[in-house]
Design a protein around this nucleic acid. Structure first.
Length: 304
DNA sequence: TCCCTTGGCCATATTACTTCA
DNA sequence: TATGAAGTAATATGGCCAAGG
């Protein structure tokens, strides 16, 4: 196997300011900055400027990845041959057939202009094998060497996207085609995002569990308080509720002049048809959201 | 200035292949 | 030895953006 999850040694993090979670994860701003695209993950990566905080270590000589690579080399199949003549063209800054294919792949009309033969030749050349070696239409997968992977990882740590110059330089350094470097970075970003999504998912699952538990607890508390409220002795200690009125149009609470409550008692007038007659509010009514004056909860707090 | 085309890059999904348990 | 799972290089597709006509 190339590299297991352990081998990757992912150091993913969730980072949300103000949130300390028992998972010891730094939740990313994902919970705040939810991307608009449906396909985007919870992680809130910006489509163009993602925040990468995942680090992949260089391959460990003891890892399966390294072993696999070594085996592949020992078999005499060096998939990482130096670029051919055509590749040199590319390194000189000429867009490679491969790159061209890639670039226009999204442009249907242009794609249609490429004949299959050419395309297949290009594919064969991209594999670094001759036509004789190229059996049928199968595509041989190349394994990057340990050194190549390490260098790519290092480069990825510095910048998770490449500009054309960087791509060229890296390709030259690694003896790969720029297209391969480009693909590697694309896949690397995808892997990182996938891992980040998994971490986010796990975090949110825990958040959900915590909130469910909290909700259960609060509901129990409400039940207890309701039971208290119904007990007659409880009312003996209560002061009568203040009569409040609320403007339905702006939902501001207006207290009577005698009220000593903290609600806004400034003159409250509206001009125009949108202003309606203030509606008296019963602070004891369960549906009244804006009430102030002594509530059973205040009494409980005072006593405790 | 607006519109259209083109080219490049990217994300994402999928395929094809490799390796290991 | 066969096989399924996992990892990953490569491909396909479509969106976004900038440059240029």
């Amino acid at each position: 196997m190339m590299a297991g999850k352990e081998d990757l040694g992912l150091s993913l993090s969730l980072s949300v300011p103000q949130i300390k979670h028992s998972m010891q994860l730094n939740l990313m701003p994902s919970l705040v900055n939810v991307p608009s695209t449906a396909s985007s993950s919870l992680s809130g990566f910006h489509p163009q400027k993602p925040s990468w905080n995942v680090t992949f270590p260089s391959p460990d000589p003891n890892s399966s990845s390294y072993r696999a690579e070594t085996r592949s080399t020992l078999r005499g199949i060096d998939v990482n041959r130096l670029p051919s003549t055509a590749d040199c063209e590319e390194e000189a800054g000429v867009s490679s057939p491969n790159s061209t294919i890639s670039s226009i792949s999204g442009k249907r009309s242009e794609r249609d202009g490429i004949n299959g033969e050419e395309h297949e030749m290009e594919r064969a050349s991209s594999r670094g094998i001759s036509d004789e070696e190229d059996g049928e239409t199968s595509r041989k997968k190349l394994r990057l060497s340990k050194d190549q992977a390490a260098i790519l990882e290092e480069s990825f740590k510095e910048h998770n996207t490449l500009n054309p110059k960087q791509k060229m330089a890296l390709a030259k350094q690694l003896g790969l085609r720029p297209r391969q470097v480009e693909v590697w970075f694309q896949n690397r970003r995808a892997r990182t995002k996938l891992k980040q999504t998994e971490v986010d998912c796990e975090f949110l699952k825990r958040c959900c569990e915590n909130l469910t538990e909290e909700n259960r607890r609060l509901q129990k508390e409400v039940q207890d308080l309701r039971a208290l409220k119904l007990s007659p002795q409880f009312y003996m200690h209560m002061t009568p509720p203040t009569t409040l009125t609320m403007c339905p149009s702006c939902e501001r609470v207006a207290a009577p002049p005698t009220a000593s409550s903290a609600v806004d008692a400034r003159p409250h007038t509206h001009i125009g048809p949108s202003h309606h007659r203030p509606v008296p509010m019963n602070p004891w009514a369960p549906a009244a959201p804006i009430t102030r004056g002594p509530t059973p909860f205040d009494a409980i707090r005072r006593r405790s």
